[in-house]
Design a protein around this nucleic acid. Structure first.
Lengths: 213, 213
DNA sequence: GGCCGCCTCGGCCCCGGGACCTAGGCCCAC
DNA sequence: GTGGGCCTAGGTCCCGGGGCCGAGGCGGCC
């Protein structure tokens, strides 16, 4: 098919590349045009073969997926990159998306879903498998429990939100029309209740638990 | 078609509902089973009609999309919700996704892409239009610029990562086998380079820009 | 009425954080 | 060689952050 979606496979395991290839061979609108075993080779092949979509593992020896993504983005008319990962590596999702990934799916995805994902990505969409998106969105919620957040009073949550904005006690005092001392009292109570050491940890806790100013 | 994807349209503008309906009528695997003009009515219709996918505006009088999303999630076997919005409302994207939205597309999406989006969402995927995802991911970048992140040295990034872990200077010193004074120097340089006021802001900057410890 | 929790402050004390200045060793580029 | 960037580190100074103790006003609950 003249309009087949050209796909490049990048993974350090030959077995995985083979598996992906057989998955995709039965799709007549998708053509695997090449393979690469690491990020650096992936970038080379991408320049050479100009695929429409690249299926890439994030975790590889040498240049890993995120680095490769950055390089790929620098090419003109860069391919869309669908990250294929073998396990729930939450921490890699956001960096990968930031680096320009167009999607994130698990290796155990079924063939049709994978083909669908490739088509979606090729069509210009951003695609996350529900487990990935779910994990991404749920990670903060479930960390140490928003339950403790409930133990904070309304005022304390308000103060915490401003801490999470990077504001100083004085700025918070001005914002809430309070004395600086009162703010410090609230901060102390927040730290005690959440068992944190200082405002920096409080700010981090807040962003992870979605406490907004 | 017996297996057609049942879709419910929720938007406060009749014109929009009509437009969406005509878009979808030509798709023989998608069937519009109902419409609603606001969030509350949307929830009612959803209970009554049990659609597979709900196309919903986030910005509506009365109960808005986010509230409706929360309600919908409480139903058993809830429908997948594809948020359709008329403009780039970055701030609504994350709340909508947190509230359980399965996708986010613009109203000016072309018919085929919309149908594709519905199918993707129905298949269990999370789908963001590239402009949305781009805006989402770019928002922090464009704030004060990751360009400056590149200006940090390797060591500084390392220190920043530990700050973003909520560590004190002393802890960082121990971790990196440095004197506390050196750590303070690094911290000062980081704050200067990124134009931040204190370590709390630095920690927040780091998490937003994906600098990991 | 009494008790309690929240919000509001004050004073006091101490330490950690950050600014500013200086400087030596190291490596790389010109 | 000379300069420049990075990493290291010392000193000094000072303010902001946070702990600890106390206290008054207010609203709800028993």
């Amino acid at each position: 098919m003249a309009d087949a979606i050209k796909v490049l496979l990048v993974d350090d395991h030959q077995v995985v590349r083979r598996g992906l290839r057989t998955f995709l061979e039965v799709q007549d609108d998708i053509e695997v045009v090449g393979e690469a075993a690491d990020g650096a080779e992936g970038v080379e092949r991408a320049e050479e073969l100009r695929p429409d979509v690249i299926l890439m593992d994030v975790k590889m020896p040498g240049m890993d997926g995120v680095d490769a993504l950055r390089r790929l983005r620098e090419l003109d008319n860069p391919a869309r990159v669908l990250v294929v990962t073998s396990f729930t590596e939450q921490r890699t999702v956001v960096p990968a998306l930031r680096a320009g990934a167009a999607g994130y799916v698990y290796k155990d995805v079924d063939p049709d879903a994978l083909a669908g994902a490739i088509r979606s990505v090729h069509a210009g969409h951003i695609l996350l498998q529900p487990e990935v998106a779910g994990a991404l969105l749920a990670q903060e919620e479930s960390n140490s429990g928003t339950g403790r957040a409930g133990s904070l009073t309304e005022r304390e949550r308000e103060v915490l939100g401003l801490i999470a904005d990077g504001r100083s006690n004085r700025e918070i005092a001005r914002a809430l029309v309070l004395s600086e001392k009162t703010v410090k009292t609230h901060v102390s109570n927040i730290l005690m209740k959440l068992d944190l050491a200082d405002r920096t940890q409080a700010a981090l806790w807040a962003v992870r638990h979605g406490v907004t100013g």
